[in-house]
Amino acid sequence: MGSQSYVTIMKEWDIVAARQMGRDIAKNLGFGTVDQARITTAISELARNIHLYAGEGKVCFEIVESLEHKGIRVLATDNGPGIRDLSQVMEDGFTTSGGLGAGLPGVKRLMDDFDIESEVGKGTKITTTKWVR
């Protein structure tokens, strides 16, 4: 399937690089300004979580195409501490860092498909997709 590219997250400014790349891909796919902002913000949340909780990781982008539509898939992976209770972190307002706790539930609402896998001590993998309407 479509082409793939990625940004390695190691320092804070890599977050900016990741969302810039995501925004460019989204724009080229024909997403409108509102969806571009949604996708960029979702990437920002995922990349920042990697930076804050895992230290380092990767944000990959993939252009996905099915018969009816095209979309952008964002994969955020890290080998960090992992998440013990997945349903808890998907609750609005849950945070372990004194943040707003709006990141992950927000990403789920900003994007169309959302999937999270995590294993304590191994890492976290979040796959999320937005389709061009």
Binding site: T33, A37, R38, G103, G106, L110
Partner: peptide
């Protein structure tokens, strides 16, 4: 901006 307003609403802030 309008797109920022929508994004903020989606984030649930």
């Amino acid at each position: 901006r309008p797109e920022i307003a929508q994004t903020i609403v989606n984030l649930g802030i």
